[in-house]
């Protein structure tokens, strides 16, 4: 997946993303960190063609997103949203099985797949499959969100502040579990967050985004030593430096 000198803005606003260049390898976990409004979510939307670049090229699996059929492209990409985005009118099972249903899988295959996925994210299907989203806790909802994004085993996973609304303990718990799942499936992941600790907990490479541009993108140990003031601001939010070592 490559971004080559990508620029984007909405017709009525200034540049949200500019001169953005980044290459993501297969199976890699990249975490983009930045303050709110830095353009992180827009970068994710450029990948699954929710928006098209104004300048430059975004390639997915070597192919320009402009050339991809948007529906086909999106079915290859799992997407976990900021506020989970579970459909309140569908049960847990229906939410998880939705993309397979769109792909017209047979019913029993969908059922089997949802059971596997719910087990994978730590929600026993016997208890949770027929529940409604309103009957779940925040952490459980987030797990369902991850399961749903993984439903047809997409090669790419985009995650927009996936653990943002959780309490710190649940957050760390889910991060660990997500790291386990990712290692198991070897999915390529771009995750955006404003939480530097999360970046160090999950990333193989950390990209720092400021005002729509990539300030630095490197291994966590390199980023941790950066002198750039835009990076330092974020590093200063980390209260306990020992965690840096623990993650790498």
């Amino acid at each position: 997946m490559q971004f080559e000198d990508v620029g984007f803005r909405y017709s009525n606003s200034g540049a949200l993303v500019h001169s953005f260049t980044l290459s993501v390898d297969r199976g890699e976990v990249i975490v983009l960190v930045g303050r709110s409004g830095a353009g992180k979510s827009t970068i994710l939307k450029l990948v699954n063609r929710m928006v098209l670049p104004r300048s430059g090229v975004v390639r997915v699996e070597g192919r320009d997103t402009r050339e991809w059929h948007p529906i086909r492209l999106r079915r290859r990409i799992g997407y976990v949203l900021q506020e989970v985005g579970l459909f309140p009118h569908m049960t847990v099972e229906e939410n998880v099985g939705l993309v397979p249903r769109l792909e017209r899988w047979p019913v029993d295959r969908i059922r089997a797949r949802t059971r596997v996925l719910l087990d994978l994210v730590g929600l026993p299907p016997g208890i949770f499959a027929s529940r409604w989203p309103s009957e779940l806790s925040g952490g459980q909802r987030q797990r369902v969100g991850v399961a749903r994004a993984l439903a047809i085993d997409p090669p790419i996973l985009l995650m927009d502040e996936p653990f943002g609304s959780l309490d710190p303990v649940t957050r760390v718990e889910l991060q660990r579990e997500f790291a386990r799942i990712q290692r198991q499936l070897a999915t390529t992941v771009i995750l955006v967050t404003h939480d530097m600790a999360e970046a160090f907990a999950l990333a193989q490479r950390i990209g720092v985004v400021d005002a729509g541009a990539l300030v630095v993108c490197d291994e966590p140990s390199v980023v941790a030593r950066s002198r750039d003031p835009r990076v330092k601001v974020l590093l200063d939010t980390l209260i306990t430096p020992p965690e840096i070592g623990a993650a790498s």
Binding site: M50, I71, L73, R74, Y79, L81, G85, F87, V99, L102
Partner: peptide, 12 residues
Amino acid sequence: SMIDAGVAMGMT
């Protein structure tokens, strides 16, 4: 966000 979720899943 419901619409976005649907679009991102590749709904027509």
